[in-house]
Amino acid sequence: MELHELKNTWTVLDEQLKKNETLNKQIIQEMLQKKSSRSLNKLINTSFINLIVWLLGIPISIWGYHLPRFENFLFPKILFVTIFVTAILMVIWSCYQLRNLMKIDFSKSVKDNMRSVNTYAIMLKKEKIAIYFGFAPIYYTLGILSYYELGADFSYWTFLVVAFIVGVAMTYWTYKRIYDTNIQAIKKCLDELNELNEE
């Protein structure tokens, strides 16, 4: 094949590309699916880490409850029981969330995926409300009462305040930067895939 033949073949290819709408559609579809998969993997990984953290909370709370130094104190025991109950609830909740995330498959129907993502977003919203207005105040109240009962010195109180600030900042960052960003990214890609399919 000489250069002029190559040029002829190229011109024909160019003409075909002009007519070939499906080619672009296919490439865009692949791009969107890959982008969504990356965001979905980030969500799955974070949920998995959450599950491990809460699983660790179960033995830690049992161990804390049986520590001899807390034997005659009420609030530390209540705190460990609360951690134990929360950990069990959160393990079940995380498994449920993970199961919902695993249902998402970008090679399948966009509408089903949208439904799963929306369900996950609602679950996360409920979790956020429960943590901000339920678990966090209860934990910190119990923490303060336990420290008061134990007669903790200044360094322990400082630790509690720092832990509170770091905890709030970390929770806010995780929800904003990991969950919200990735859910929005998936939703945007699914909307675009939907538009592409309707065209």
Partner: peptide, 11 residues
Amino acid sequence: HLIAPESMEEN
């Protein structure tokens, strides 16, 4: 990716 007519595919 290339949907080409039979005659052109080989080329």
